[in-house]
């Protein structure tokens, strides 16, 4: 019970920290906070700026601003983007669905691929094929994700013409979406798999030296069934933690992949926001991404409790 309280406290603290960061950044950074809140490239006269300052409450004390900010957040009001001429919350709502779909599919694919290959490579680490596999995945994990995306785009879309260059679909049918998503999802899945692979391999190498694996062998089980019935369950526990911790990392990898493939998701939104110095959109995007990652972490904690009975049982 104490552990649950501690976890909840930590999540609450993370949430608070994220919100506070988001509140404090435009006000603490060098430059005029009004400029920081509306975006740098927006040209307004001095009088309008004073008006905005009063309207946003920037002349009031900080704690009042903070309560007002929390109030706005509860109403899903993330500010107004003067570049896109629409509320930030609306812009984000349009974009995040696609990105979540993209990240979700590639994380799941990557986890499955990485776990299975990693388990196999860890079971027989000395064979030549597995060593090659290991080096291949190390190389993949050392490549910046967008470079991999660039290479794939160059080879498969430009040279061979197998896949379209950009966008989610030509016509909104499942086939078209799948055709467009194939390359980006493959890149992201490979990237995610490379991280899972290395952890899984190490974990299986460690687990197969345990006594229960020896006992299973003494009982006369086949190699494959030892691996898949006994070892893999214990070895995949670190993967769940890693998946949660990595979710943020993969999410950011997805942003870059989106930019390369010109997918209309969060990544291109953030790219345009950086180019136009559109701070409200950037902040909103950070808040949404951070909260998504937080949720993914919670989910992983729950999953961990389901997968590992030792966590559930009070000790």
């Amino acid at each position: 019970m104490r552990k649950v309280v501690k976890k909840t406290l930590r999540y609450a603290a993370s949430f608070l920290l994220i919100v506070t960061l988001n509140f404090a950044l435009p006000r603490l950074m060098p430059g005029d906070p009004v400029k920081n809140l509306i975006g740098e490239d927006v040209y307004v006269s001095e009088a309008v700026m004073e008006e905005l300052r009063i309207e946003m409450g920037l002349n009031r004390p900080l704690y009042e601003q903070f309560t007002a900010y929390i109030g706005d957040l509860l109403m899903f009001d993330l500010g107004y983007s003067y570049h896109l001429h629409s509320p930030v919350a609306e812009v984000l709502r349009e974009r995040i669905g696609w990105t979540l779909l993209f990240v979700g599919v590639s994380v799941l694919l990557g986890a499955a691929l990485g776990t299975l290959l990693g388990a196999y490579a860890g079971w027989k680490p000395e064979t030549k094929a597995n060593r090659l596999l290991c080096y291949g995945f190390i190389t993949l994990s050392c490549t910046p994700p967008y470079f991999l995306a660039l290479l794939c785009l160059h080879i498969f879309a430009f040279k061979l013409g197998l896949f379209p260059f950009k966008g989610f679909y030509d016509v909104p049918t499942l086939g078209s979406v799948m055709h467009h998503m194939f390359l980006p999802v493959t890149v992201m899945a490979l990237f995610s798999a490379s991280r899972n692979f290395l952890i899984m391999r190490g974990s299986v190498i460690q687990e197969k030296g345990q006594l229960y694996a020896l006992y299973a062998r003494a009982k006369g089980l086949y190699d494959i069934s030892i691996l898949f019935r006994h070892v893999i369950k214990n070895a995949s526990l670190p993967i769940i933690t890693l998946l949660a911790l990595d979710f943020g990392f993969l999410f950011s990898g997805a942003l870059f992949t989106e930019i390369v493939f010109s997918l209309n998701g969060m990544g291109t939104l953030i790219y345009d926001a950086i180019m136009g110095k559109d701070y409200p959109v950037l902040q909103g995007a950070f808040l949404v991404i951070a909260l998504t990652v937080l949720l993914a972490n919670m989910l992983a904690d729950l999953l961990y409790a389901i997968a590992d009975p030792r966590v559930r049982r009070p000790t």
């Binding site: 990392f249 950070f286 990652v293 937080l294």
Partner: peptide, 16 residues
């Protein structure tokens, strides 16, 4: 650890 690094760095990099 739970705060996603790259997005935060992006924001900081944009402001600074």
């Amino acid at each position: 650890l739970t705060i996603p690094k790259i997005p935060l760095i992006i924001i900081l990099g944009a402001f600074l």
